[in-house]
Amino acid sequence: MAKRLPLIILLWFCTDLYFYKAIHTLTRAADYLWIYWVIDLLLMGGLAAVIFVRRGSQMQQTLITWVIGLMLLAFIPRLLAVPVLLIEDLSRLFRGFPPRELWVSELAFGVAAVMFLVVLFGITRGRHFYRLRRETIWFPDLPEAFDGFTITQITDVHSGSFTNAAGVQKGLDLVNDQQSDVILFTGDLVNNKASEMDQWIPAFAGLKAPTGKFSILGNHDYGDYIQWESAEAKHANLKRLKQVHSEIGFRLLLDEAVTLKKDDQSIELIGVENWGKGGFHKYGDLEKATASVPGDAFKVLMSHDPSHWEGVTLEHDQHIHLTLSGHTHGMQFGIDFLGFKWSPVQYVYKQWAGLYQNAGRYLYVNRGFGFLGLKGRIGMWPEVAVITLKRGSR
């Protein structure tokens, strides 16, 4: 983040200077103009403080939450208003640069005001604005007994970010309402420490599924992002987190597979530890996880990071029919409407939200149940996914 700070500051002030033209057209009152710049300086000071506060401390986490939210609230509305001003300036270029039209500045300010309300909703209510997403996937070799088998997937709970019990319960009730055959959780139960789950154990233990509840670890579950007093303390934290999975009724799969049976037929559910590109640890071992899995079995894989799909799974000698991942959160910011989706995270992850397919192998990337860093979601709402397996071809 420190390396990107100069670029962030440059983009911020370039946008500010441009939008300032609209403000200056609408009002010349010195008080308002001074407030405009003081807010910017305070936000930049907050961003600098995040860099210099002790890494992983509670103070840094609190600063990150507030600074990200306030920066988005100030930056996004202005950024989206800039094209309105730019279009007029292109017109003015061919007209000898006459004074800016008042109505154009009013329009730009109106666009900014609307986006301000959208962002405000996202950071105040978006964190628990759960959306149900359904996918039906057809497989010619799915065992007949599993035709219509339903999976509810949740991922990236990040319980250390929760403060609203009623909001969390709203999402858990949505999970139970689906009455799916199985519930799968694909990693990041906590931000850093197992103790973050203590108050939420009863709520998550209330999730029900007739065929069972299964889970894996995500990159945040290992405690790699904070400083521990000793290696023993870090190890004890991970051991405790594994116990928490049991206490909430989930069978934690650690590079292993379990057989799900129905009417004398079966499918294999595989779970790997976290494996990711781009500096993330590669704990997961798919070879180990599939060592006892029959080659002709129908396989569902839980793998937290979607980069594992192209990095390992597609090239694996065993045909993995369906992989379920999370990790990206859809960056908790973007546009996801009527089939169109966009988020800055797509420039980092090729597969970042929704369903993907390659030669009969499918990947579903869940946008996440919780939130981290930004204490909210803007356009990229929290998700409960229901996937129905069907036998045959679509």
Rank of each mutant, 00 (worst) to 15 (best):
A2D: 12
K3E: 14
R4L: 15
L7C: 05
L11T: 11
T15K: 02
F19P: 02
A22W: 00
A29S: 12
Y32H: 14
L41M: 13
M44R: 00
L63G: 05
L63I: 08
T65H: 12
G69R: 03
A74Q: 10
F75H: 09
L85H: 00
I87P: 01
D89Y: 03
R92Y: 00
E101M: 08
L102S: 07
A113N: 07
V114I: 15
T124G: 08
Y130P: 07
I137S: 04
F139A: 05
D141M: 11
D147T: 15
G148M: 02
G148V: 05
F149A: 00
F149T: 03
T150D: 03
T155R: 02
S161M: 06
N164V: 06
A166F: 03
V168A: 04
K170A: 14
N176K: 06
Q178G: 04
S180R: 00
D181H: 01
V190L: 04
N191H: 04
W200I: 06
P202H: 06
F204N: 03
F204I: 06
F204E: 02
G206Q: 10
P210Q: 07
L217Y: 02
Q227L: 15
E232G: 15
R240W: 01
F250C: 05
T259H: 08
T259R: 09
K261E: 14
S266E: 14
I267Y: 00
I267E: 00
V272E: 01
E273P: 03
K277W: 05
G279Y: 02
D285N: 13
V293R: 07
S303T: 10
D305T: 11
P306Y: 01
P306I: 05
S307Y: 02
E310P: 12
E310I: 08
T313K: 03
H321L: 06
H321C: 08
G334N: 04
D336Y: 03
G339W: 01
S343A: 11
S343D: 07
V345F: 02
Y347P: 11
W352M: 06
W352C: 09
Q357P: 09
V365C: 05
F369D: 08
F371V: 15
I378Y: 00
E383Q: 14
E383C: 09
I387M: 06
I387K: 00
